[in-house]
Design a protein around this nucleic acid. Structure first.
Lengths: 182, 182
DNA sequence: ATTAACACGTGAATC
DNA sequence: TGATTCACGTGTTAA
């Protein structure tokens, strides 16, 4: 119950409202800051600032560590890529060939390979070895031969980021030319 | 010039000093915070808090991005390590393996061979080579592998007068034990 | 002279 | 109760 006869304080300063809004503003920012900082110990103005300080230092440290770790990994990654690239270059020598090799990507890790070639003693083994050497894991094979012609359907899985179907095809053509077609 | 008769203010509150130290404390933290934050626009209390807020948000964002990037790289790295490790483990496990080799005569010249064994790098090639060495011509192969276990169904033709199914089986078991089970 | 920002002392509330 | 913390109104100062 508010009484009508209560004193209305008379304010001398003109900047009263300005000061009020200023304080409100500061407090708002302060509380916003508090909301942003986890692990608040005490909700005091001083401690809020203190925790914010520590938190910023923590974040700075984290950023620095993560950046260091990242460049480190980046270096390793580049090294690996480079080594694989050189491997790849070695195997890159490709000639034209009129064999029937079809490489079809199934999904991100799987290729379907169809090869029609002349059947040769030991050739199939070498084909398997070649696929293994490319880092491709054979998950399924179906081979039938008739009258000296072999029909190979092979499913392989592997890291295909660096091994595009067309490249696999060219490698296989070379392989087949060299070892299988005779 | 200070006069000796100037009024010394009389303070009513007892918490005057406490309040003074409190304000000093808050201001110290505030200035410390300001020193920690780069790109200060205006040196006002409100703006200091505001800039600190934005800065923390910025740092949080940076940390998150870096972490994501790192996790991504970490996954790739782990995958590679894991693949190589599994390869290594597979290559190391030589002894323990229960084989399942079934040799069934189809006709006078044809055998159907079923082999269930652990999948090994290059093992399949050796199996093919071994069959060739036995004078058996492979006319049909079907291989599927799942979780490191390979299921081979092979049809071979050859001169079987001297090569009974049971002998082929024993030879294959030995062969698989020696080269395939890994 | 107007304004924005600040420090101060004080009363009140909280623990 | 004392000790802390806060909000408030005010005076002051620099732009």
């Amino acid at each position: 119950m508010e009484e009508s006869n209560q004193q209305q304080p008379v304010y001398k300063s003109k900047n009263l409202m300005a000061e009020r809004t200023r304080r409100t503003k500061i407090n708002q920012r302060l509380y916003a800051l508090r909301a942003l900082v986890p692990n608040i110990t005490k909700m005091s103005k001083a401690t809020i600032l203190d925790d914010a300080f520590d938190y910023i230092e923590d974040l700075k440290k984290q950023v620095k560590e993560l950046e260091d770790e990242l460049v480190e990994m980046g270096d390793e990654r580049e090294e690996k890529q480079e080594s694989e690239a050189s491997k790849w270059e070695m195997a890159q020598e490709v000639q034209k060939c009129e064999l029937d090799v079809v490489v079809t990507p199934v999904d991100a890790k799987t290729l379907e390979i169809k090869i029609v070639c002349e059947k040769k003693e030991g050739g199939f083994s070498k084909l398997m070895a070649a696929l293994g050497h490319l880092g491709l894991e054979v998950t399924s094979i179906n081979v039938t031969s008739f009258r000296g012609v072999a029909l190979n359907t092979i499913c392989v899985e592997g890291e295909l980021e660096m091994l595009k179907p067309i490249q696999v095809k060219e490698l296989l053509i070379e392989m087949v030319k060299e070892h299988l077609t005779i």
